[in-house]
Amino acid sequence: MIERTNPLPAAADAAVISFTLNGEPVRLAVPPARRLIDVLRHDLLLTGTKIGCEIGRCGACMVLVDGRPVNACLTMMYQLEGRRVTTIEGLAGGAEALHAVQRAFLEEGGFQCGYCTPGMIVSAAALLAERPDPTDDEIVEALSGNLCRCTGYGGILRAVRRAVAIGREADGTG
């Protein structure tokens, strides 16, 4: 349970939303239609989730809800009641245990400016959780909602393929 002092007065029209955030149960009194992206970045100071287009086009704000990628700019707080939310901050097992996709992006240089990277990693992690050995077409499809304006995607696709290989090695099947 999050136990920080609340920096803002309770809104008159707030509702209490209970959900799981990065493995911890949280209860927040928020206006129910407030966007998840605003709660993450402004209220909870979890700024790893980036904000770009604000209309679900760029994928910079990608998070997982019950394991599936969704855009935090399109998601309203009331839609999260009872759900399990994972942000880029919750993907790794800890500072010493990066997620395989995070490791692969570092090893392959799957980024330049880095702004799209958290969203790319979240989308790729969701794909590999469902399909540990995806085809190239499935990788492209899974990342089709994430825009990168620097890399031309070559390094990103290489990083995802590297993450697949890391997964195989971990399984002992590689």
Binding site: E3, N6, L8, A11, D13, V16, R27, A29, P31, A33
Partner: peptide
């Protein structure tokens, strides 16, 4: 505890 955030009167209510 419950944390509370938001700007009163700006967001729609949810029925």
């Amino acid at each position: 505890m419950v944390m509370a955030f938001g700007t009163p009167g700006r967001d729609p209510e949810v029925l």
